[in-house]
Design a protein around this nucleic acid. Structure first.
Lengths: 112, 112
DNA sequence: GCTATATACATAACCACGCAAGGTAAACGG
DNA sequence: CCGTTTACCTTGCGTGGTTATGTATATAGC
């Protein structure tokens, strides 16, 4: 398994979190698992990285959190995507694809 | 035009520079233009960002520089990829594709 | 001849962000 | 009862882009 370079984590955390929340509410601990599963186990985020990101995203109005209590008695902070967050997600996708397209050009479109 | 987020610049600078040099020698100022052209004008790197990256890559033994003088009388520092750099490029490509694949999953493979 | 632009490199102060490590707290399984 | 999982949070450190500034030379326009 490859350790994801931290710069790549930094570049992908916002788009990935916003995209996950575009599919419905979620909370920190679950987002960690979703990333692990969606990536087929190739991406492993630390919680020490995730929570500050969530706070920043909320501070910037891209997501909105609410505290909830499960029947089991666990407290969770559920986040949902705001309209502003949806716009940011679209812009992030554009810039991501610009960079990705350039890299794929260099790597040769179909091969390797 | 979208300003590429700096985290995305940070994530892509090393793989992109290594991949460019995998196609043959180049130098700082030219790399800036290559990135602009390859991206269809969507990516615009600053030279204040590029030169420190080149120094780091050379310090880490991923690329090797040599000074040269053009007929016109300009000094240039040409860089080439080392074997170590080639290995790093391959690993960078792996982790990039892991992240990209996950994002595309979230975005829906073919659409938008 | 002069001057603006392009070429070509470099560095410094500032800010943002992940990582490792540590902390709190409660539920659950054996 | 005790380790593991769930679930949140924060701090110190190092890394890396941005902006601004500096140096030097060649070329093009007037």
């Amino acid at each position: 398994m490859f350790r994801t370079p931290k710069e790549l984590v930094a570049a992908s955390s916002r788009p990935m979190i916003l995209s996950i929340l575009a599919g419905g509410e979620s909370y920190g601990y679950e987002i960690l698992k979703q990333v692990r599963v969606l990536s087929g186990g190739r991406i492993e985020w630390s919680d020490g990285m995730l929570y500050p990101v969530l706070h920043r995203l909320e501070r910037d109005g891209l997501i909105k959190g609410r505290w909830a209590l499960t029947e089991a008695g666990r407290r969770r902070k559920y986040y949902r995507l705001t309209r502003k967050g949806k716009g940011q997600m679209a812009r992030d996708r554009e810039s991501w694809r610009a960079v990705h397209g350039t890299l794929e050009l260099l790597w040769g479109k179909g091969n390797v």
